[in-house]
Structure formats: C-alpha cells, structure tokens
Design a protein around this nucleic acid. Structure first.
Lengths: 221, 221, 221, 221
DNA sequence: GATGAATGAGGATTCATTCAT
DNA sequence: AATGAATGAATCCTCATTCAT
C-alpha cells in the first residue's frame, strides 16, 4: 500500500521514465523495446506489453506526459509587464533545465510528425501554440499582423532550441550548455532577446545588474 | 566524367539524393538500406555497397554534401551594414527554401550527435559556428561578451528552426510554411528580428516599404 | 451446483463453449488462450487455469464433451430395416446441423492426431468406429469382408464431410450448405446414397415422395 | 548450368517441398518459419524471405502448386462408360497415394478457408468443383437435379477423405491405410461405391474378378 | 474463483552486410 | 557496376504459463 508520492514508482512510471530518456536521446526508431527494458528492473520485453499496447503507444504516452507540464507553463494571456514576462520565462527555463531531455524529445517528435505521429504531436502542441499566440496580442504595433505567427515560432525556436540542441552546442562550443552558469547566461540572454523582440527592451546599460540576475536556479536533481 | 550541370546524374549522386531526402524525413535509424534502394533505379541493396562502404558512410556523405554549401553561405567577417546583413540572410533563406529537407537533416544530425555521428556533425558544424561567431564581432556594446555564444546559437535557431520544423508548423498553424508567400513573410520577420537583436533595427514605421520587400525569391526548380 | 438445464452456465461451461467454437474454426495451434478469454466474460487468462490445467487439457475437454453425444448417436447393432437406418441418419444429421462446428472440430482433431493429440482422438473415436462397424454386419453379401472397413470409413466421410467442409462448400458452391433447405436436401441425398451403398436402395421413381421428406428438422437454438 | 529436370532442385522448390510436407502435417498455424528452414539446407529464416514475401505467400504457393496437378486429373466431361470412370479414378488414386500429404493439405486448407485463405482455396478449388460437376451431367435420372451438388460433394469426400484422414484411420483401424494393399482395397471399394452412386453398378457376383483388380499401383518413391 | 503482473521462449519479419556471378 | 542469394543478429510482438493478492 505505498502511496503514489513515495519513492516507489509504479512499473508504468518506471517504464515511462526510461522510455522518455531513451526516446529523447535516440528517437523513436533508434530505441528498441529491449533497450527500454534494459533500463528497467523488469526482466523481459513481454512485461512492457502489459502496460502499453505497443511501442508507439508507449511513445505517445511518453510524449503526452512530457507535454502536459509544458503546456501548463506557457501563458495564455497577453503579457505586457516586463516582470511578468520574465517570470514566465523563468518558470519555463527552470522546467526545461530540470527535465533535460524534454526539449529534445519534443524536437524529435516535431521532426517525425506525419510519420509515426500523425496526430499525436499536433494534438499536443497545438494548444501550446494557441496559448503562445494569445500571449502576443499586444505586439501589433511592432510587427505586422501576418508576421505574428512567425514571431511566435521564432520565440519557440529561441527558447526550446537551446535545450534541444544542447548536445550539439556542447560539441561545437566546447562547454556544457546545461551547467548552472551556462543556463543562467542563457536565461539572461533570452530575457534580453525576448524583450527586444517584443519591444520592451530594458536600457542596455543596466542589464548586468538587473533584478533577474538574482534568480535562483532550482537545484539539479 | 559528367559535370554537375549535366542532366545525367551518376549512380552515386542518385543514391545521395534519395538518401538525403529519406534521412531528412525519417532520421538515420528510421531509414533502411532497402528504403534507399527503393527510391533509386537500382534493383539491389548490394549495389549501394559499391558506392559507399556502409550505411554510416553513406549518411556522412549525405551530411557533408549538404553542409558544404551551407558553410559557404555563412559570412565569416563581421557584418555591420544593414544591407550586407540582409543580403546574407537572403542568400541563406533562398538556399534553405530551395533545399527543403536540408534544415531537417541538420537538425536530426544535431540531435543524433554523440550517437551515430560522434565526429561527423561536429566536424562539419564547427566551422559554420566559427564563421557565425566571426560575423558577430561588433555586438559587444549590446551584449555581454559571454552572451555572444548564446546570441550566435539563438540566431542559428531562429533561422534554421523555421525550416527544420516546417512540418510541425504546417500541422499547428495550418498553412504551408514553405509556400513562396510564407517564406517571404518569414524573410521579412527574420530581417526585422535579426536587426533588432544585433542593434541595427530600422525605424519601425518604415518596415513595410523598406527595400527588402522587393527581393525576388528564386524560382522553384 | 447448477444443473445442466439451468440457464446459468458455469464458468467451466462458458469456457468450453467458447473454446469449442474457436478450436473448430481455427484449430488447436490457431487459437491462443487469449483468444479464448476474449470470448468469455473472464478478464484474465490466468482464470482459465483454474478450470483446466493447460491448453491441451482444455482442448481434450472440448473434444470429449463434443464426441460424447456423437458416440451415443451411432448405432452399435446392425441395422437392416430401411426405416431404422433412416431414423439413425436423421438423428445424426439433426445433431450435426445443430452443433455446427462439431464436425469441423472432429475433422481438425483427426488431422492433428499423432501431433498434439496422440491418444485423445483415438481413444474417443475408436468406440465410434467400433459401433459403426457393428452396424454393418449384414453387408457381406454386397462387399467383400476386407472391404467393410473401407465402407465404414466411406460412410463416415460422406456424413461428416458435408458438415466439416461446410465453409468450403459455401465458398465453392455459393450457397449456404447449413441453411435448413440445404440440410434437408443433404438429408435426402444421404439417405439415398447410404441405402444404395448398403444395398437397400429404394425404387428410383419413388424417391421424391417417400416418407422421409416430411421429416421435421429441429428448430435452431 | 543444371537443367531443371536434374536432381538439382532450386532453392525455391526445396522450400516448397519442405513447406508442403509440414503444412500438410501440422497446418498453417502449426508450422513456424523456423520449422521450415530446419527441413532445408538453408541456414536462416531470412533466406526464406528471398523466395516468398511472407509465410502466407509461401503457403499459397504450396497450395497452388499442389492443386494444379489435381485439377488436371479431374475430368471435365461427363463420364458414362464404366471403364472411363474407372480410369479416371485410377489416375486420381495413383496421384493421391503418391503424394500422400496432398489430401491432408487440401483438407486443412478447406477448414481454414475464410480465415487465412479467403480467396486462395476458393480460387483454386472452384474450377475443380466445376469440372467435377461437368462430369456428372448424366445422373439426373438417378438423382434430383438439386441433389447433384450434394452428390458431387459426396464423391469428393469419399475419394479425398480416405487420404486426408489416413492418420486417423491408421490409429482407429490399426492398419496402415496407405500400404499398397490397403490402397488397392480402397481402389476396389471406391470403384464399386462410385459405380453404385452413379447407377452403373456392375453385377455383384463378378466384382472380385473384374478387370480393375489387375491394376498395377505405381511403385512408391 | 478471479485477476494484474511478470516472464522465458518463441512467433514472423527486417536489418545491414557479404559473396559469387 | 550491378545483382540474386544468403546469413547472423536484431526487430516488434505473442505465446502459454505462473504467482502473489
């Protein structure tokens, strides 16, 4: 009789955890059911099929669990105050740096869309997009109305791209982009960039001592 | 000895073409040698091994052929004039919208790095990054020095993300992001965004009649 | 403690019913325990093992239940009067057309004999054969003694083949061989054929208005 | 450069031979691809897939090869002379006793029809039925027209049932039904039975010295 | 009795690769 | 340069069965 909040995760959750990590690292086609079981106390691939009908169902379960939280972090109302915008960004970055492979997982799913996923990613990402669009209502004086979707996509790529491509950045820039200090730098950069793109850029000279510098990143798990 | 401009493509090139398309759409692990042969006049998988030692060698050949041109399009010198910057962007966008799966291919390679690729992407993308960094020499009055790599990465994501995630955008926004008009809008958005991020933003009111509106997109093949 | 006549069938009987149908349709190897559970109110394959030790035991239970009644319908004494012969045939045909998959089940068991079944079918069918032989005592003036076993086998194939191959006949002749009228025709044909083979053939001209035409087929359940 | 008529059978034929034997003995569901390879000089199941697209395609190839010859042995014209009828029966029995598992194979296919086979058996057996019907044109003075299909089916069961159920008969009657002498007895019985059913029965007293007794069975392979 | 979970063995099929022609 | 055939290893998934609850 262990409660769900204890350390005892159900088999289903253990599988989802392992699968999330692997799918994020290698993609749907790059992960075998055997690989997943191997990262699990289970002894046999057959056991997986007790919890998920097939590989794809498992993948989609991983995906929706991962996107669920993300969706709740994206504001659906327009953000006009600088501080509110920054708070939103902070929450998103905290989450993404805590769940390292999530951005990769989403990026892979996006690339695979129409192949394995058809509906899944679309169904899950569309609300996220809708919310994001809602948050951009006030920008029409800066961008033409028909450019706003491009702006939304651009913000998405700015924010998620950093985490999705962390591996690549590490290899190219030769520094760990997920180290606390690197994430903190990215946070500062992102706030500046978003503010500029939304037309609420702070005075340049104050950037380094601005209040968001003292944001406390969550302790890594 | 057929030149590149001849209509007669060599077997090697035909294979590379098919493989590029497939790898971009499904990723390394998602494509089988059989799939590739099937998109080719060749009748047998064995024939592939006449031209490429193995699957991975074929993949890397696809990758380096694709990245070759891209690298030559990225400026290695700092760009301070607005018009020069725009010319650079124009060339890049032209190329990416003409070679639709290239951005996907690169994004997939980036995600797979350290798995199948180890050296390949890194080796190929590092010069691209170095060049990009070089072009950003003048921005230190706008961004802290240690933020410049983040800016470089951000620009990369802004530019490539749109094409890499075209499938996703189509599914979410319900319009073809690769249609000539959409690409033109993205071009305008991108110029504005880049200018803003690099601190050479044009007066907002003039954007719609600014000179880059009359840019002629290349005729599709 | 439910009697056989109660509407409430025990779990064991429900399982046997489902298994009989499935084994008849697909054969022993073509049916999985999962398939059987799926045709049952039970929710889990484990439940099957409460009633039957294993798949084979279940199969044999199905088989002996099915053959039990058949055995009781085959006369063990020689039949010389035409009317008695016809009554025997009528009873057998009634039963076989009421229990549609029984003949298939037996035919499959016969083919599988020596494979999964070794003893089962043999043990169950041998008495049936012995009884049948007994009923053929008088035919030695028509057939050589050593031909009588062939005659017994032939009668068996004539009678059971029609029902065992009903699916095939439907596909080939394009009419339902189990429809009441088709069964009635088969009944007439069979009586004629058996009578001819046993040397008690009725005068040809009278066949259509002979007494067995008014036989009432049992109402379907 | 071996000709097709030499002992060197092609891989495809070797596979077909092994598969025919196994499918006849155990049925489609009871045979695994591994079983088939094991009866073959091939070392790997993968090799099977070079010659047949999948298990079912292999099964259907076995089936059509087997039914091809049979079809050519069934007369399509009405047979009125006794000797012609007997010649037909002789040819059919010779073939069936030479190709022992063929009747089993067909019987199994008939039972499975509508399951794995849908079209296959039907497509292959329908012409056989049509031919058989054609051979029965003259019997309308003995049987009602609507009984003729039943007669056709009955003859089929009489002839094929003996070989299809040889295993069962052996177990029940305790003698090998495929021994030359047993086949000879069955031949005699069958001629008598068919003649009786078609109304061309020979005088009873002469049966044992009638000309068909000196038929020479083919030497077993 | 019933059931959810687990599991070793085996199911069909595909993989990348090799080799003789 | 091309291809048909072959193959060991791996793919996803299903099998019959067991056990704790």
């Amino acid at each position: 009789m262990t409660t769900e909040t204890t350390k005892t995760r159900s088999s289903r959750e253990i599988i989802l955890d392992a699968a999330e990590r692997l799918f994020a690292q290698r993609g749907f086609a790059g992960v075998s059911m055997r690989d997943i079981v191997a990262e699990t106390p289970l002894k046999n691939q057959a056991s997986l099929y007790h919890h998920f009908e097939n590989k794809r169902a498992l993948y989609e379960a991983v995906l929706s669990r991962g996107l669920e939280h993300i969706t709740s972090l994206v504001p659906s109302e327009p953000t006009d105050s600088l501080s509110e915008l920054e708070a939103n960004l902070d929450r998103l970055l905290d989450y993404l740096s805590e769940h390292r492979h999530l951005a990769q997982l989403i990026q892979r799913a996006a690339l695979d869309d129409g192949r394995y996923l058809e509906s899944a990613v679309t169904r899950l990402l569309r609300p996220l997009y809708t919310q994001g669009r809602g948050a951009l209502t006030g920008v029409e004086q800066l961008w033409q109305p028909e450019e706003v979707p491009h702006l939304a996509a651009g913000l998405y790529h700015l924010i998620f791209g950093y985490f999705a491509n962390a591996e690549l950045l590490r290899a190219v820039v030769l520094e760990d982009p997920l180290s606390p200090s690197a994430v903190e730098r990215q946070r500062r950069f992102l706030k500046g960039a978003v503010a500029r793109l939304l037309g609420i850029s702070p005075p340049a000279g104050e950037r380094s001592q601005s209040p968001w510098d003292d944001h406390q990143p969550p302790s890594p798990p």
